[in-house]
Every structure is written in structure tokens, then in C-alpha cells.
Design a protein around this nucleic acid. Structure first.
Lengths: 219, 219
DNA sequence: ATCGGTTACTAACCACCGGTTACAATATAA
DNA sequence: TTATATTGTAACCGGTGGTTAGTAACCGAT
């Protein structure tokens, strides 16, 4: 049987993936060359192209796992019935921030996936679908904390606001040399304050909006 | 006299700067090569190294002007006595966002300037000083809208929160293909909502904090 | 046992990058 | 006119991501 060849191939593929994962995490996507990955994986750099279309495809494949895990985390936060709607959004924000700081390369893939690619095939689509699902989870969380009957368009707007905020936090420290635990020890309370401000602001603004809308409907 | 040479040299230098400015704005720093800049400037790529240490120094020199203009804009917003403190912070946020979206490369320089460089000389320091001054302006704006007697440490924390937010907006659309006017037409009201949420959240959170602090002091 | 085809892989190469060096042309000062 | 800066370039360096032509090992079938 062809098991011998098959497993050899799978091992090489896995070695490439592991090596690339470690190196990307250590020094970032641009800071790592295909030759380095190959050296760490114990093959020539051309062998990588047998298993992955190009460097970016390698990164994409590495990102899908963590991103799927993030999706599960956000879904869990969204479904936590022991929390108020606002607390659920806070939990989602916290997890999103922690994820972004921990899996910097995966986060980058998530953000940089071009929305409207035509010429590509699978991997970009997978990431795009993932991104849409993540944003949908966020929207559901936001919708639950807004007054009943808030129109979809407003839910979308508030979701964007939340995204801007947490994305800003992640981006601010994405390239920091500081390890995540140290970063959270130093700035965790600032991040919490940030979420405080965000949620309080949404509640207040949305309430004012609802009141305006209500009185306008009455008048 | 040496005017002939001097002006020739100045012209070449300026041609390089103009070409690089246009190309960077069009296709981004990484998307442009020194050879392209040289071609557009009408010289060989090695000539660029006569006037600029390296590609990054070219970008830095291009960024100093716009960043200084931003500083003036923020200072003007901060000094606008016709506005309430919160409105002044809103004006600063608006200008910061517009700047970030309009001068994407300069913005990038501002954000990426490594804080603690040892081996570098002038240009990095200039950008760093600029960044510190910009953040100081923001802090003064925030301090004015917080309750009297808010400790510096809290002012800093709230300033970070504001920065996270506006930075998140800029980062979200930094790589968008959309032109700035189109972007603002489509999302300007979302950005305004975002600033609404941010300012309302700060006021509410800071008030709650002050009350806690006050009652604690009283008790 | 061996032969043909598939699989797994690589050496050599491509065009290009940012940056350096050794050298030519020209304008200026003496 | 001659010596010296100034201004510029061609050729090169080590490196990149990626391609291609070719090889060695394995596999199933005769």
C-alpha cells in the first residue's frame, strides 16, 4: 500500500506548518523567509510550494484553527445566560482583545483578508466566512443590549463602534515586544476601563436615540 | 559662486521627495521600490542615497510636515474657546481621524516610530517628540472634560481609551481602497456616532468614578 | 525481479529588492 | 589651466519569493 508515501508527505507538510507557525509567532510574517521555514522544517524551500500555493497560503492555513477557536469563544460568551446582555458584550470584547494580542498573525489574517477577491479560491473564502460569522456574533451581542426594536441599521452602526474600539486596542499593542501576560498585567485595568467607557457610552447614546425616536413617533 | 550646483542638488532632492510622496500615497511604502522612485524623479536609484540615508529616512522626512500640521490643528481645536471641553475633544478626534485617513503613510510613521531607539540619530527623535506632543495635547483636552481634581493617572487612562478608539477607526480603514471623501460620505455619521459613544461613556464613567472617590473620601 | 508511473523532493535558476562601492562627469575655486 | 569638490551612475552584493527541469525513491502490476 501507499501508506508509507502518504505518511511521509503528511509529516513533511506538518513539519512545514509547525516550523512556520513558530517562526511567524516569534518574528512575524514579514520577518521570516521561506528558506528559514524550510531549514527549520528540514526540507528545501521549494518543497514548501508543493504543499502551499505561496507564503500567504501558509499563513492562512495556520490562522484558520485559532480563528475557529475564537469563534467558539465568542459564541460561548454570547450564550452565557448568567450574564446581562452588556456583560456578554464585555466578555466578547475581552476575549477578542486577548485573542488579538495572543494570536497576532492570525488576527492580521482576519483583518487583512480582502473582502472582494475574485481570482482566489478556498482559503481566502474560508477566512472571509469566518470574519463574517465573527462579526455576526458581535452584532447579535450588541442587538441584545440595545433597546427593543432598534433597527438593524443602528445595530450595525453600534457594532462598528464596538469593533473600532477593540480593534484599536489590539492594533495599538500588536507590534509591542511585551509578552501578553505582562501587557495584561500592566494595562488590563485600562482595557477594562476602556470597555466600561464603551458600554456606558452605548447605553447612554442608544437610550437617547430611542427617546428621540419615540418622541418623534409620538409627535 | 556655487549657486548652480546648489540649486541643481536642491532640485534633485526635491524631485526625489515629490516622486516618493506621490508614489507612497498611491501604493504605500512597501509597494514602492527605490528604483521606481528614482525613475519618477529622473535619476538613478543610487542618487537617492546621496540625499537620504535609506528608504525609511525618505518616509520620515515626508511625514514631518503633515504631522506638524496635525499638531497645529489639534492645538487649534484644543484652544477653541467657543466649544465646551467635550466638544473640543470631539473636534480633536475628528481631525485626528481625518488626518489618519488622509495621510496614511505619515500616520503609519507616527505610530510605528520605535519609542526607545538607541542607535538612531535625528529623524526618529523628531517623530517621537511630535508623537509625545500630540499625545500631550490629547491629555490636556481630556483633562479639561474630566471632573476637577481627577488625578493624572486617571487622565492618562482616559486618554489611552480615547486613543484606542480613534486609532481603531483609522486602522480599520487604513488599507481601504476607498477615497477619503467617499469614505467619509459613507461612514462619517458612524464616526460621529462613535465619538458620541466615546464622549458619553467617558462622562458617565468618570462621573461614577468621581462619586465613588468622593463618597470614599467622605466615608 | 523488474518495469512504468507516480510521488516527494531538490539544485539551479529567475527577476527583483534595498543598499554599497568604485568610478566618471561636471562645475567651481585657485 | 589645473586641482578639487560636487553630483551622479554602472556594476555589484547578498538577499527575497517563486518557477522549472530533473532526480531518486517508492509502488503496484506483470
Amino acid at each position: 500500500m501507499a501508506n508509507r508515501q502518504r505518511s511521509r508527505s503528511a509529516e513533511t507538510r506538518q513539519a512545514i506548518l509547525s516550523a512556520a507557525g513558530e517562526l511567524f509567532a516569534e518574528r512575524g510574517y514579514d520577518g521570516v523567509t521561506m528558506r528559514e521555514i524550510a531549514r527549520a522544517a528540514g526540507c528545501s524551500h521549494t518543497a514548501i510550494y508543493l504543499y502551499f500555493k505561496d507564503k500567504e497560503a501558509l499563513l492562512h492555513e495556520l490562522a484558520v484553527g485559532p480563528l475557529t477557536a475564537l469563534e467558539a469563544e465568542l459564541a460561548a460568551a454570547l450564550g452565557d445566560v448568567g450574564l446581562t446582555p452588556a456583560e456578554r458584550v464585555r466578555a466578547m470584547g475581552r476575549r477578542f482583545i486577548r485573542f488579538g494580542l495572543t494570536h497576532r498573525n492570525s488576527y492580521h489574517v482576519l483583518m487583512m483578508a480582502r473582502a472582494g477577491r475574485v481570482d482566489e479560491e478556498e482559503p481566502d473564502l474560508a477566512v472571509n466566512a469566518l470574519r463574517n460569522r465573527l462579526f455576526a456574533l458581535l452584532r447579535r451581542g450588541i442587538a441584545a443590549m440595545l433597546p427593543d426594536g432598534t433597527p438593524d441599521e443602528r445595530v450595525l452602526a453600534y457594532s462598528r463602534v464596538v469593533f473600532f474600539h477593540v480593534h484599536g486596542i489590539v492594533e495599538t499593542y500588536r507590534l509591542s515586544e511585551e509578552a501578553v501576560p505582562a501587557l495584561l498585567a500592566r494595562l488590563g485595568s485600562t482595557f477594562e476601563l476602556s470597555l466600561d467607557v464603551l458600554l456606558a457610552g452605548i447605553e447612554r447614546t442608544a437610550a437617547a436615540e430611542a427617546q428621540r425616536g419615540g418622541s418623534r413617533r409620538e409627535g
